[in-house]
Design a protein around this nucleic acid. Sequence first.
DNA 1: GCCAACGTTGGC
DNA 2: GCCAACGTTGGC
Length: 162
Amino acid sequence: MRYWLLKSEPTSFSWDDLWHAKGRTTRWDGVRNYQARNFMREMRRGDRALFYHSSAEPNGVFGIVEVVREAYADPTQFDAGDDHYDAKSRREEPAWSAVDIRAVEPLRRPVTLAELRADAALAGMVLLRKGSRLSITPVDDAEWNTVLRMGGSSSKGPSAAR
DNA sequence: GCCAACGTTGGC
DNA sequence: GCCAACGTTGGC
């Protein structure tokens, strides 16, 4: 199983929105960056991800989600009424993908961006790299365990997962 | 609101 | 193929 981090601006879709969504599940769509899209295509059912609020007060990780459906064609790319419509994308070969995710549990304490930056064990996190703007980034096992520990999560690390 | 960093677009 | 201009992201 691999780990990821998903960014969302809570003013458009928050951890709370996901927690109260039907089945605590949503389609993660609208990604229009190739690198992020490629990461999404690497996601496998059962992979877990940190749910991160950006452009928020505070910024930080609020919960844990699970991939419940692997990459498929993002329908918003074909919807002329959608903000994420892409006139150049062809149905025979869709440019953009979506996955479905389900909320697993909130962190007991959200872990703020400032706390992430302050922890030397997380210095290599893709999220924290200078200039990093990707909405989907990989998280390694050690980083995952560190963030969950900081957040007081009851979930265990890779060895005890599932 | 500012602005650094980055990705994309389009003229050449 | 180069690269300047532009738009977006996102922390501060």
